[in-house]
Computed example of a mutant assay.
Amino acid sequence: MRLYFKYLNIHLKSQMQYRASFWLMSVGQFFIPFMVFGGLYLMFDRFGQLQGWSFFEVALCFAVIHLSFSLSECFARGFDAFSSLVGRGDFDRLLVRPRSTALQVLGSKFEFTRIGRLLQSSFVLVWSLANLPAVWTFPKLLTLALMIANGVFIFTGIFILAATFCFWTIQALEVANVFTDGGREMAQYPLNIYEKWVTRFFTFIIPFGCVSYLPLMYLLDKREGSELLPMLFTLGGALFLVPCLLIWRFGVRHYRSTGS
């Protein structure tokens, strides 16, 4: 972790050398999801509810997913940009260093301009919580924190899987965007509004449902039962990360360099 924080500090200092550019990009990142949220607001202003879900209930789901995605983009961007390391042959240099390749790739790039997305999602989170008093208990707030943390694990795991394919394809596969950008857009709404096969896929294969829909039902008192079970649901994100890292190790063992 000491090495990771050194990577973090170096990248922060380098990006702050061009402060005007940094803040302009951060402002731009603030307004990108703001437009998406504006569409959500207008939809509820027109129709009132979505299959029994109110605006602030869906806004809470929106905030959780966008916070998770923003944090993952900020701190796991190295895997998202991994194809450039393979294409230039720079990954060979990482292999001879006495540290984990996953840690080095993780520390190869940070996107601190995502602070704009984080702020916008945080505003939505606070606004929705202020209008959902049922969430203001310690077990529910702890569950909410676990939802965000494990959402970060899921998006990071998808970035790792996409990066692993680069060992064989050199370039990143655009199909990965179906599960990152597409998964973010899909999971910002409660999963029960979709077809059953979609709900099952994004609960048991890529477990977005474990960090949004299932715990959300508990937070909003839409289901009864133990308080411990919804917390355990959120750990599906951490479990998803484990096979992703194992697949990454398999890819590293079969890496044959680009010949550059």
Rank of each mutant, 00 (worst) to 15 (best):
T137P: 06
N9G: 03
L239A: 12
R184M: 06
Q17A: 13
F153R: 10
L60G: 00
L50E: 07
G251T: 04
A134Y: 01
R249S: 10
M217D: 01
T143E: 14
Y213V: 09
L12V: 14
F75W: 09
F153K: 06
I205L: 15
V252D: 02
S121M: 04
D221V: 06
F204I: 05
D181H: 00
R93Q: 12
F31N: 08
F79G: 00
I158P: 00
R93E: 09
I148K: 03
S83H: 15
D181M: 06
V36W: 10
F5S: 11
M186S: 03
A172S: 09
L3C: 05
T156E: 06
F55C: 12
L146D: 00
L71D: 11
L216P: 01
L94M: 15
E185C: 02
R114Y: 11
L129F: 06
G259A: 07
C61W: 01
I65W: 02
G107F: 02
A102M: 07
M186C: 04
E73K: 13
S72Q: 12
F159S: 08
F159H: 11
C244T: 02
V198T: 15
P98H: 13
G251M: 12
I148Q: 03
F37G: 05
F47A: 13
M231P: 03
R253P: 00
I158A: 01
A238Q: 07
L146R: 01
E224W: 12
V36M: 07
P215T: 08
E195L: 15
R2K: 13
V198Q: 14
L94F: 13
L8M: 11
L50H: 08
V124E: 09
F91V: 14
R46D: 10
T199R: 07
A134T: 13
L50G: 06
N131M: 05
P139T: 11
M1S: 12
L40Y: 00
G182K: 08
L50D: 04
F91T: 10
D90M: 12
R2D: 10
S21W: 02
R184V: 01
G157W: 04
S108M: 07
E111Y: 06
V86N: 02
G52I: 12
S128T: 07
L161D: 04
F22K: 10
A187L: 14
